[in-house]
Simulated scan of single mutants.
Amino acid sequence: MDTPSSSSSRASNFELLRILAMLLILILHANFLTFRFPTQEAIHTRPLLALGQVWSEALAIVGVNVFILISGYFSIKARVKGIVSLLFQALFYTFGVYCTLVLLGVEPFGKSELIGSLMPLNRKAEWFLPTYLGLMLFSPLLNAFAQRTDERGLRHYLLLFFIIEFLLGFMNDQLEVKDGYSLFSFAGIYLVGRYLKLYPEHFSSWRGRNFFLSYLGLTLAQSLALIVYAYVTKESIMGSPLTYKFLRYVSPINIAASILLFLAFSRLSLRSTIINWVSSSTLAVYLIHCNPHLIGRYTGFIKGLNEQYPTATFIVLVIGFILAVFAGSILIDKLRQLLWKRVISPLYDAGACLWKRVGLPSIQFPEPKD
């Protein structure tokens, strides 16, 4: 994913990681959102297939946390124009998707639906965008805290933060972390990204391959433990609150896996205009396929494939479908970027200039320093 507030410095290794993070989110929704966890019958009759389903969930669940780590690593440069750009991008897809479906005759026209499409930050429709906007607004405070705290102080604060989140959020649901779907959780992950940027020397002794293998091993060990537990106790994964929580964003294992994958890509040295070109539109992939009018069709199409084809063919077709959704969304977003560059951005600049000329106050966010 990419946002208007991200750093202008575009290292292709992290841009490639953005692309991977979005592909992981597509896989996550193609797996867990579509089929949930494997049933007890599947675990006992097809344990390897069930393990593969859970492991793919564990591998993919890190996508959102990785994106927030990248945002923290480069630090969000909060600007009014960046916020306007993000809101325009959200509006472009909520309004555009609804109007397109109505014109194609797929959705009936409704006044309330039309009004709803003009409200892209509707929390009931989707959670990520309003939460990320909140992170943007709070980022100057988080940046200032990370800058003014020494390494030891920031490390101890992060340790305390995640202990509290584990005890009161992960274990007991006494914090408003909502399994990681919250500004509270985003703030902690963001600060980890800042720490990794400001103090990289603490992780310099490991090679990228070791980080990546640790990511694979940790997620596999967690998945295997969940399958073995469900097999022995005959208790469904969904039926056990604790095991279910281990495959949520707030899980300490998944946070650790996110960091390991991030550090693996941090070791790459890569420069590519194509990767950067694709990466600049990855947020569109999320906004399109998670649109409330499309997400049900996304999961429904995958369910249909599962009912029509054997497992091996189904997996190949799903991979092709995911890649098609990804590529189509990227191409659509290039039109949105052109509209922003040629029309909306100049209108904003003209309005901002007029605002200053009449002497009205403007909002200035402090710039983070790396």
Rank of each mutant, 00 (worst) to 15 (best):
W206M: 03
E201H: 14
N13Y: 10
A221S: 11
F314K: 10
Y249P: 03
E126N: 06
G96H: 11
F14W: 08
F128Q: 13
N306K: 00
S6N: 05
I315A: 01
H289P: 03
I295W: 04
T149N: 05
L287E: 11
F162W: 06
A50Y: 11
P241E: 12
L118M: 15
Y249F: 15
F67E: 11
Q40Y: 00
A125T: 03
Q40N: 12
E57N: 14
M136Q: 11
C353F: 00
L26M: 01
Y298F: 10
H202E: 09
R271L: 08
S223P: 07
I274E: 12
C290W: 06
L16G: 04
H156T: 07
A225E: 01
S85V: 06
P140R: 08
S269G: 10
T45N: 10
D150V: 10
S112M: 12
L154P: 01
F265A: 06
R336T: 01
G105A: 02
F128I: 07
Y249L: 13
R148C: 05
T243Q: 04
L331K: 12
E201I: 07
G193W: 02
F109Y: 14
L137Y: 05
G296L: 08
S8E: 14
E57M: 15
K197G: 11
V250Y: 12
L263F: 12
L347P: 02
Q308A: 15
K245Y: 10
L121E: 08
T233E: 03
L339F: 06
S223M: 10
C353G: 04
F212V: 00
G208Q: 07
V278M: 13
V232N: 13
H289E: 11
P38D: 05
I76D: 09
Q89A: 14
F109C: 09
R194N: 04
L226Q: 15
V106Q: 08
S272D: 04
F109G: 11
F145I: 11
A90H: 02
W277Q: 10
S251N: 07
G110R: 13
N254E: 14
Y348L: 02
N143I: 07
G110V: 09
L360E: 00
I227K: 05
V102Y: 12
L218F: 04
L159F: 04
V54C: 05
R36K: 09
I83Y: 03
P47N: 01
S240Q: 13
I68F: 08
P200T: 03
F88E: 02
L101W: 03
S362N: 07
Y231W: 15
S251P: 03
V177D: 05
V80M: 06
K197S: 09
K303H: 06
Y181L: 14
L263Y: 10
P38Y: 05
Y181N: 15
S240V: 10
V62Q: 09
S269I: 13
V318N: 08
S85M: 10
T131K: 13
E107R: 06
L216G: 09
I163M: 11
A60N: 11
E151N: 04
H202Y: 11
S223V: 04
A327G: 07
F211T: 09
G208A: 07
K197M: 09
S182P: 05
L28W: 13
R271S: 15
L268K: 00
E57P: 08
Y190I: 00
V318T: 13
L218D: 00
R194Q: 04
Y199E: 01
L118D: 12
R248T: 14
S269K: 15
L33H: 03
S56W: 13
T131V: 15
P368G: 01
P366D: 06
